[in-house]
């Protein structure tokens, strides 16, 4: 049986979103997959902001926007917690045994515009 879809909220009641485009800079030849990166981001954010803090950010690493070749991806969060999310990215310096750093490419309010300019 098909599950009933929730009625869409009014624009004024919806959460305002922000999209953060980033690039992972790593040692030459290293490629990371989505799940590795997702785990690293979640662990660091939970450590730094705590469970309650993360719940306020509505953070989500978008799976279809992660490109393992260019190592570029997009993070979604709400407009009130952009600084917390970006600062947390700065605290990730290792992914497994590899040293990494994040370059913030762009910040946008719509997924369309960030995809066009990436």
């Amino acid at each position: 049986m098909k599950q009933k879809k929730l009625k869409t909220l009014k624009p004024t009641l919806r959460e305002k979103e922000r999209y953060v485009a980033f690039q992972v800079i790593s040692e030459e030849g290293e490629e990371f997959n989505y799940s590795d990166l997702e785990a690293a981001i979640w662990n660091t954010m939970l450590d730094f902001l705590g469970e309650e803090g993360v719940s306020k950010t509505s953070v989500w690493l978008m799976k279809d926007c992660w490109d393992p070749k260019t190592q570029k991806g997009i993070l979604r969060c709400n407009n009130k917690s952009v600084q917390e999310v970006i600062a947390s990215l700065g605290l990730i310096d290792r992914l497994g045994d590899n040293r990494i750093t994040f370059k913030i490419l762009r910040l946008s309010g719509t997924i369309k515009s960030i995809r066009e300019k990436l």
């Binding site: 600084q83 600062a87 750093t101 994040f102 370059k103 913030i104």
Partner: peptide
């Protein structure tokens, strides 16, 4: 102390805000 610890300017700005 290493080039891996050099951070994006936007990250430093965000940390300043926090």
């Amino acid at each position: 102390v290493t080039h891996w610890q050099l951070k994006d300017p936007k990250i430093l700005i965000s940390m300043g805000c926090l």
